[in-house]
């Protein structure tokens, strides 16, 4: 019985650890996603035009650009406006450095959501390149490439680690229920002797497994709550969170406890 009790403590601890990590990954994911979303939203394609381009051609170009799939907005930056932007960005008047304005006119393009990945941007950039009077196309190629390539790896790694920890918690609950069954083999055999149905014999073990899962989840939720509070107070007040996260943790804990104890009972109760 003592061994079973120790196993219970270990199982509950591991469930809370597993779910805490899943919760932390959840928060990490939320914030990462928001940050990357903003990064992508800020992303713009600059299409530099031949400095001698005529107004007529500009209007025509704008129309062609707008027809490309995935374009959200097109803004024309004239030579004069470009100089202003230069001043805004660098705090220095371009005319202080050189006498005539070397900045070419350009279009600044924003893309619709879902088109802000490296692959899509490159494709759109290729289409733009084919247009008349287009000199050069600039976008944050490298940043996009890095984000697109590594975010998948990070997410995949996160999911894998989460699954691994969940599996460990699963094995621990399974094993705890096994120990509990053997610790209570006397009462099980007496219950059967006096006419308990298998469902009746089985129920307390499944309930116990679910309780272990839920208690683990509750502990994980409390720890996560204070972790969020701590981060928001002392480190990063804009941390993105959602109350659903706690619901998900409780649901996962319950499910984890139920599935592992059911399997354990199915396997071990008949041997007692």
């Amino acid at each position: 019985m003592k061994r079973a009790r120790l196993a219970t403590v270990i199982a509950v601890t591991s469930v809370s650890l597993a779910l805490l990590l899943i919760g932390l990954f959840g928060i990490f994911y939320l914030n990462m996603d928001r940050w990357i979303g903003r990064l992508r939203a800020k992303m713009e394609i600059e299409v530099f035009l031949d400095p001698t381009v005529k107004q007529e051609k500009i209007d025509q170009l704008r129309k062609s650009i707008q027809q490309i799939e995935g374009i959200e907005s097109v803004q024309f930056i004239s030579k004069e406006k470009a100089a202003k932007r230069f001043k805004q960005e660098f705090g220095q008047d371009i005319f202080d450095i050189i006498e005539n304005n070397p900045l070419p006119p350009s279009f600044v393009i924003h893309l619709k959501k879902g088109y802000r990945t490296y692959m899509r941007v490159s494709a759109i950039s290729g289409q733009l390149q084919k247009l008349d009077a287009v000199d050069e196309i600039v976008f944050q190629k490298q940043l996009l490439q890095i984000v697109d390539r590594y975010i998948q790896i990070v997410y995949l790694g996160t999911i894998l680690i989460g699954l691994m920890i969940t599996f460990i918690a699963f094995v621990l609950i399974y094993n705890t229920i096994r120990l509990t069954i053997y610790a209570r083999k006397d009462i099980i055999s007496i219950m059967r002797l006096v006419g308990a149905t298998e469902r009746f014999v089985r129920r307390p073990f499944v309930v116990e497994g679910m309780a272990q899962g839920l208690i683990g989840a509750a502990i994980a939720s409390i720890l996560l709550f204070y972790f969020i509070k701590f981060v928001k107070t002392f480190i990063y007040p804009y941390l993105a969170t959602t109350p659903y996260l706690f619901l998900i943790l409780l649901g996962l804990g319950w499910l984890l406890g139920m599935i592992s104890s059911r399997l354990s009972v199915g396997k071990h109760l008949q041997n007692v």
Partner: peptide, 10 residues
């Protein structure tokens, strides 16, 4: 049947 056994044992 297995499920009848508890009832006869009562």
């Amino acid at each position: 049947r297995r499920k009848d056994i508890p009832y006869i044992r009562r």
